[in-house]
């Protein structure tokens, strides 16, 4: 039990983070794409396509944070102080973009809150990427507590990951708009999807090459035998999915490009998991080092297994209720 409980919890939190990245990814992506819209009317349409969902999407972030707190309190207590500034910047950025949904509608001029929405979405994404990059590079830990400085996260690799995530969320947002909107917004989104796809592939390549060179443990994981025999399909499948995504965009398909973008994200995410498992705080603390009390993990796991299907059920209900495309000029409330 002491062995497999942390493993199950790593799976639960991994799923929550994946759900978050995909679901809030596309609505943060809308914020990243906001400046490229021609006018506020188009922005209304873009925002309308995500308005009923964003709050639920962001709840996965809370579940990820709370899950980490529950299942791996010692990792939570290292990761949060290590990324103190990026976490707080991310939270404040999410504050501004979150209220922008409502404030934009009730203010005299939409412009100001459109800017807040863009800046908030982009900053939150950058911060998330920086945190990810910092995790990959490793956190300085002594006696189970964070032992680095307040700016350890500020590295070129961290910022590279930040930009990579902006491109990634941009791709998710653009393909979402292809699926969920009509008219000029959809036409532009199709063009943007291709541009963001190229950018994402570029970043993926750079990160994939950089990490094994910089971190010996990651090179060891991928290129030692027999690991390499099992792992070589990951980049190959990624390339195939990217190709399919490109073609589907070109064929003016609605949903497939978005689904392919999700698949790309999951492959990249899977690659990171392969690189770092079983470390939760690379390169020192594993999921077993940081696990909470088994009785707490079980108490929460029972609730999760019972409640999560319901949660997924009514999330599906809402996506189904608001199915279909948002038309030009269609707005809010």
């Amino acid at each position: 039990m002491e062995w497999y409980l942390p493993l199950i919890w790593a799976g639960v939190i991994g799923t929550a983070v994946a759900m978050y990245v995909v679901m809030d990814g596309f609505d943060l992506g809308i914020g990243i794409l906001f400046p490229f819209a021609k006018n506020e009317r188009e922005r209304d349409q873009m925002m309308r396509s995500i308005a009923p969902f964003w709050d639920g999407n962001e709840t996965w972030l809370v579940l990820g944070g709370a899950g980490l707190f529950v299942a791996f309190p010692r990792a939570y207590a290292v990761i949060m102080p290590a990324f103190y500034l990026p976490v707080i910047v991310m939270l404040l950025a999410l504050v501004f973009r979150g209220v922008a949904f409502e404030f934009r509608l009730v203010s005299h001029s939409k412009k100001g809150w459109s800017v807040a929405f863009t800046v908030g979405s982009t900053l939150a994404t950058l911060a998330q990427g920086v945190i990810l990059g910092g995790m990959i590079q490793g956190i300085k830990v002594e006696n189970g507590a964070y032992a680095g400085g307040p700016y350890d996260w500020a590295t070129p690799f961290g910022f590279l990951c930040g930009l990579a995530l902006v491109a990634g969320y941009g791709l998710l947002g653009a393909t979402w708009l292809v699926m969920k909107t009509e008219g000029l917004v959809a036409v532009r989104a199709r063009k943007q999807s291709k541009q963001f796809l190229i950018a994402v592939l570029g970043f993926m390549a750079v990160v994939s090459l950089w990490t094994p060179f910089a971190e010996a443990r990651i090179a060891e994981r991928w290129f030692s035998l027999p690991n390499f025999y099992y792992l070589w399909p990951v980049p190959v499948v990624t390339a195939l999915v990217a190709l399919a995504c490109w073609r589907w965009i070109g064929q003016k398909r609605d949903a497939p490009p978005f689904l392919a973008a999700i698949a790309l994200f999951m492959l990249g995410y899977g690659g990171l998991v392969i690189s770092n498992f079983p470390y939760l705080v690379p390169p020192t603390l594993t999921i077993w080092d940081t696990a909470g009390a088994p009785s707490s993990q079980i108490f929460m796991l029972v609730g999760t297994l019972v409640l999560l299907p319901f949660v997924l059920g009514y999330i599906v209900l809402v996506y189904w209720l608001f199915r279909g495309k948002v038309r030009e000029g269609e707005s809010y409330h």
């Binding site: 709370a66 707190f69 529950v70 299942a71 010692r74 939570y76 909470g292 009785s295 707490s296 929460m300």
Partner: peptide
């Protein structure tokens, strides 16, 4: 974390 965590969860 063992106590407060699950309650927040």
């Amino acid at each position: 974390g063992n106590i407060v965590g699950p309650l927040l969860g």
